[in-house]
């Protein structure tokens, strides 16, 4: 099998799940005839028809609302938000209607909300968001943010088959930049399980999505300097795999958290708390974090480069921590 991009892996997941189960339907803006703003849904309409691939008006609340209604009928809708920034338009539907449904009255909502996220492509303040923490703070949702093509396909399949509402974030910087050979057979990746991407002895980096690749690059440089870094890729942010994080921290005794989301209220704070509660005695240095700046995502390249965390930021934080 030829290696495929992350975008193609996502497309395959949707395609294969729709092929497997007629309860799976797709809904969103420009997803049908046009095939989606990033062409993730290209070919879906032709194969599955107007009833299963629904082009909607520009109405995020209607998209999510209708998807909930469809899920109440036992369907498994995949709702695309053209850019994840627009999820703010349907915040109420997601946090009040979708997330509380099963808890309040026992009505499961088996739906997936997915969309291109993240910066690094000069999308500006409204096409670059990392909105994960609004939703990590919403009990009733699951939040996934994969870093590889293999995980994207396997996790999306799990999300579609899950009985709960899942927010599936796709880092658009990675869409066509990473490639991987995928198994021919059907496979899934479990939700809620982090993975150790690189084993190491000296220091743990907990990260996810695009920053996983920056962290890996930093780890190779650090290895040459004699610092052996372990990288934990969260993959799922809610529920958080505390066990894998704590295991790694107990092994390396040092924790650096790296994410592309802004600093204040980012998941790094939560992970630091998890480490303090579960591995305080094992820590040999301060818990450090490398994140984006606390600002909207700026447009012009030098501004965005300054805003986003990069390999050098990771290197200097890791060196500082390794010195303890």
């Amino acid at each position: 099998m030829a290696p495929v991009t992350m975008l193609e892996a996502i497309r395959q997941a949707i395609f294969e799940e729709m092929e497997r189960d007629p309860a799976v339907v797709a809904i969103g803006e420009d997803i049908g005839v046009y095939g989606g703003a990033f062409k993730v849904t290209a070919g879906l309409l032709e194969r599955f028809g107007w009833e299963r691939v629904i082009d909607t008006p520009i109405s995020e609340t209607a998209i999510i609302g209708a998807a909930v209604g469809m899920s109440y009928q036992g369907l498994r809708p995949i709702a695309e938000l053209q850019f994840i920034d627009f999820i703010a338009c349907c915040f109420n539907q997601i946090t009040n209607f979708v997330a509380k449904s099963h808890y309040r009255w026992g009505a499961p909502v088996p739906m997936v909300m997915r969309g291109p996220s993240g910066g690094g492509v000069h999308g500006g303040p409204f096409h670059s968001a990392n909105p994960e923490m609004y939703f990590v703070h919403t009990p009733g949702l699951k939040v996934i943010y994969p870093s590889t093509a293999y995980d994207a396909k396997g996790l999306l399949k799990s999300a579609i088959r899950d009985n709960n509402p899942v927010l599936f974030l796709e880092h658009k910087f990675l869409y066509r930049r990473i490639k991987e050979e995928l198994p021919e057979d059907d496979y899934t990746v479990p939700i809620g399980k982090a993975i150790v991407r690189r084993e190491g002895r000296d220091l743990t980096i907990v990260t996810y999505a695009a920053m996983m690749h920056s962290s890996l690059e930093a780890a190779e440089t650090l290895a040459k300097e004699g610092v052996d870094v372990e990288i934990v890729d969260l993959r799922t942010l809610l529920p958080l795999d505390k066990e894998t994080i704590l295991q790694s921290v107990k092994k390396t005794n040092k924790l650096l958290i790296v994410h592309e989301d802004t600093r204040t209220g980012g998941i790094a704070g939560e992970i630091a708390a998890v480490a303090c509660e579960g591995a305080f005695e094992d820590l040999d240095g301060p818990i450090l974090r490398v994140t984006a700046k606390d600002s909207p995502v700026p447009f012009s390249p030098p501004l965005e480069e300054r805003f986003l965390p990069n390999v050098n930021d990771i290197l200097s934080a890791a060196r500082e921590l390794a010195a303890y």
Partner: peptide
């Protein structure tokens, strides 16, 4: 079940309706 935020049921019941048709 309704929620307290008004109007939200309109798209939801639209979804139930089109799923029923499907």
């Amino acid at each position: 079940s309704p929620i307290s935020m008004l109007g939200d049921l309109v798209p939801v019941m639209t979804g139930v309706a089109i799923a029923g048709r499907y």
